[in-house]
Design a protein around this nucleic acid. Structure first.
Lengths: 259, 259
DNA sequence: ACCATTGTTTCACATAGTGAAACAATTATA
DNA sequence: TATAATTGTTTCACTATGTGAAACAATGGT
């Protein structure tokens, strides 16, 4: 008991429950008790009681047909609280709307969470061909335009940790060489925007620019995403200009004053 | 026969944590340990340990500036799973977009959760004057158009429980008489739509129609909301027609075949 | 500087959560 | 239809775990 670290005094039954919740994903949106039990290495009865408690507060829902559990509406209610209590969510809405209208492509706001980018907000375009991004989605930072912007402007140790964790080749243009990545991010910071053409997914291009808070810190990125065919290479510069100015508009609304 | 016994099997530390999470709201998006402790009647140390565990899995986040806790990004990630695993969310998107464009008002998809309506999905209009609804919001069912639609098509015992819980006069036109409410809901079912003019909030009008699944059950409502001045009484019928047909389109996409 | 307020950690204790196994309830197979 | 197999819930005994009071830290306000 003496040598145990401080982090170990987490409440284990709660920790179990949260791990169970976090194990739900797009690929596995519904699960049976036994599946959860074996995949997380928890006793059947523990899982059973945990799920019953989670259900009692609306965090999961037991489908009466399939008898599988899915995430419940309390999650949705809480996500509404998260969104509406975020200044950036509110302030970016009209600017994103306008940008989507002029460019005809989907726009996002995203932030860095650990080593990933996570999408906070999304305004979809009307094009029939769209992508399967969604609010809350995580992507590796080093192969998305928004992630690269956020890395470019964050502390060096974040980048160090990203590199230490390893650079996977997701797609043909993914930067997997640490040196090249460092050089590329310096370039991104110099240009004030990042672009990503087939670095994470075939045929997908994105362009991102930083959003600053009142202190001049980069707190988020604004990006547009679309198929390579529509966001062609020779258009990237002019689109980037629009993305940068939209991001600056959001920054201004958050109290940022350009020097 | 099972309800009472099961309550004793709930994991209390988990239940505490979930109650804490559910206590976050639009009005109280951030809280200190002591506030949580006193408002929920939990010991300081219990709350402290619970929050630490919640933070370790990203369910809350401690603002380093204010030292207050707010809901974390895991919530957003999970809400993305909830949304994307819902057929209705995906299928309604283009239809809502079109409706918002033609009517110029905000549209929602909502469902019944216990005795409340809860908004699953929202497409906002471009009007500068909008309402503070948000995805995940709960409203009493009996004084919103979508709630009335959902009540009109659900089992009698749901309505009984709503009435038993009491009909509060939220606004000048709120129906607080049980008999009148029952009669009104029969009318709603006959017409195939519901309207609500200043039943929940001053100056707010909404119009809703039911969405059916492949079995012909009503599983959600589609509604438009706007200021009384724009959604004037004499226009309601014609707007309702459009709302009904949009709702039927969504129903068709979910496999509903009109008989 | 002081006291007031809040958050974290310690500690002893009793409760509350655990796992194995029994029991139900389904579902699959013969 | 019977039988086996799989899965979910409940029981039960045990002790690990979460709890509250109080001590300790860390701030903040006056």
């Amino acid at each position: 008991m003496e040598t145990k670290k401080q982090e170990e005094h987490y409440l284990s039954s709660l920790k179990n429950a949260l791990r169970i919740l976090n194990s739900f994903s797009m690929d596995e949106p519904e699960k049976k008790i036994s599946e959860i039990s074996s995949s997380l290495g928890l006793n059947k009865s523990t899982v059973s009681r945990t799920m019953a408690t989670l259900a009692s507060e609306g965090f999961v829902y037991k489908d009466p047909e399939t008898k599988k559990y899915r995430l419940g509406l309390s999650i949705l209610t809480l996500s509404g609280v998260v969104n509406s209590s975020m200044d950036i969510h509110r302030e970016s809405q009209p600017i994103l709307n306008r940008l989507v209208e002029t460019l005809g492509e989907t726009a996002h706001i995203s932030v860095l969470d650990h080593l990933d980018v996570i999408y906070l907000h999304k305004v979809e375009c009307n094009h029939p061909v769209r992508f399967l991004t969604h609010v809350g989605r995580r992507n590796p930072a080093y192969c998305t335009s928004s992630g690269k912007v956020l890395l470019a402007y964050s502390n060096d140790d974040v980048l160090d940790r990203v590199i230490e964790k390893g650079l996977n080749k997701y797609c043909k243009n993914t930067i997997t060489n640490p040196k090249l990545l460092r050089a590329h991010l310096l370039e991104v910071k110099k240009n004030g925007y990042a672009s990503s053409v087939e670095e994470i997914l075939d045929g997908v291009t994105s362009i991102a620019a930083p959003i600053f808070d009142f202190r001049g810190n980069v707190i988020a990125a604004l990006s547009v995403v679309g198929p390579k065919q529509r966001l062609q290479s020779h258009k990237i510069q002019s689109i980037a200009k629009k993305v940068i100015s939209a991001a600056l508009e959001v920054s201004a609304r958050l109290g940022y004053r350009r020097r």
